[in-house]
């Protein structure tokens, strides 16, 4: 399972989230915390690079990237699919 810390480290690269990345809880909405559309795209690309996965089209949505928990679940499912 992908750890929340691994996600927080990547969130810390986003300009708006950097100062608070360590304190965001797993279920807080990242868009409410200042993540914007382009930020979410950069987040998506950073996650793909870090975990060596590719998000399929149907997961390229705001919902997939809205909380640390949803990101962990999405990325984990992709990592497992790769490993299987």
């Amino acid at each position: 399972m992908v750890s929340p810390e691994a996600i927080r480290n990547i969130l810390a690269r986003n300009e708006a989230l950097a100062p608070i990345a360590g304190e965001i809880s797993e279920d807080e909405n990242l868009f409410d915390k200042g993540l914007d559309s382009f930020g979410s795209v950069q987040l998506m690309l950073a996650l793909e690079e870090h975990f060596d996965v590719e998000f399929p089209d149907h997961l390229l949505s705001r919902k997939s990237f809205s909380t640390i928990r949803s990101i962990r679940e999405t990325v984990s499912s992709l990592v497992q699919a790769e490993a299987a």
């Binding site: 559309s37 382009f38 979410s40 795209v41 998506m44 690309l45 089209d57 390229l60 949505s61 705001r62 919902k63």
Partner: peptide, 14 residues
């Protein structure tokens, strides 16, 4: 591009 697919999905969903 692919990043654009995400922007497009977001724009529609919202």
């Amino acid at each position: 591009g692919r990043a654009g697919r995400m922007l497009a999905n977001n724009q529609r969903a919202q």
